[in-house]
Simulated scan of single mutants.
Amino acid sequence: MLAQEAILSEREVRDAFRLILGREPETPEVLAFHQRYESEAALRRTLLKSREFATQFAQLAAEDLTRRVVAAPETPSDEDHAKHPDERPGTVPLMLARGILPEMGPVETRAEGPQASQLWARVEESWRAMGETAAHWSVLTHDLFRPESLEENRAAFEATAEVEGVLVDAALERVGNPAPDGMRAVEIGCGVGRATRALARRFAHVTGLDISATHLAVAERELAAAGIDNVTLRRVAAVEDYAGLEDYDFAFSRLVLQHNPPPVQCAILAQIFGGLATGGLALFQVVTYARHYRYGFAEDLKTGSGAMEMHALPQPEVFRLMSECGMAPLEVQEDFAAGRDGPFRSHLFLGRKE
């Protein structure tokens, strides 16, 4: 796999590190070493199989969840306060460990009738517009995937699908079903078919669902060009459209639900859980915490449509919904789909239909 001389460019190596590990190569020597891989695909496979990548999706070690008390100076400086804006001057600052966070405001998770329809229509309009102007970037918001630079980075975009593939493989293996022969999968929010590629390589059939007709048009064209013929794409014009699906074995969603208001997230998940076959699995990611976040749909509907929104669905609401829909939670792992050190906390849930 490794040649004696450099084959890959510095940019190709740096892009692979940024997309898969979220960082730069640590030294010029490491950069030079990885330039010797025979292809970008070989380099990406190595990074995806690395321990560093695996730990990004492992549960946090216990010490990461402990509260750490930091001695406060007698008079905190402006610089100190800037570093820790959540700490009040004159108090002992508590570094916000990932497991100890301030309470969020109230979050409404149920909307019915006209309000639910209005929320859905607003989400649809936002994603339709993004599909027309920057479909791939809206799926992975990295500058490499903006329209003006997409073609030269298309291979890298498609390669990121293996992130989802690795997560699916690991989840199935942990529940004792590593070979999903004959299993049918549903993908919530398939977008342009990025993760759909990885699912299609693992399942007998995949149904890709999306609210945006513009994204689905791109997905249909690009999946056909790749020779992928075990995928059915379907537009969900209203949440009730999910009800027509049933008896699938696996449901998957990542980087999607977080962009929907909490009532929309709950409505989608309830429908998806309802259609799972008995014993079927759901692997899905949601943002479960956002600093200073609160949500009320009446207030939300007064605002205009946003280009891309971020919303939180608290963990107790996720567990309540799973219980109501006959889902047994199997695992919850922290997931960095919404970033590592920002205001959001994201989790990957695995559940089984009882």
Rank of each mutant, 00 (worst) to 15 (best):
G182R: 02
T66F: 14
K353Y: 01
D86S: 15
R98S: 09
I188S: 02
E148F: 02
A328P: 10
P314K: 04
F53C: 03
G165S: 00
A338F: 12
D335C: 11
H136I: 02
M310A: 13
Q4F: 13
F344G: 12
F284W: 06
G90R: 01
L19H: 04
Q4N: 14
R67D: 12
S346H: 01
D300S: 13
L350W: 06
H84E: 14
I268M: 06
E331M: 07
S39H: 11
R98F: 15
L257H: 05
A185S: 05
P73F: 11
I20H: 06
A3I: 01
G296W: 07
L301P: 08
N260Y: 04
L269G: 05
L101D: 06
S253H: 01
M327G: 12
P263G: 00
L172I: 02
R98Q: 09
P89E: 03
E26F: 04
M310Y: 15
A219E: 11
P263I: 05
R146C: 07
I211S: 07
D335E: 06
R122P: 15
E317G: 13
G279M: 11
P180E: 08
G351V: 14
E52F: 12
V92K: 10
T303A: 08
G280Q: 04
V256I: 00
E331I: 06
C190F: 04
V218P: 10
L47E: 10
A72N: 12
T214A: 02
S9C: 05
Y295V: 07
A156C: 11
V332F: 02
M310G: 09
G244I: 12
E354M: 14
L101H: 00
V168L: 04
L60C: 08
V192W: 01
P85S: 15
G306Q: 10
L245C: 03
G90N: 07
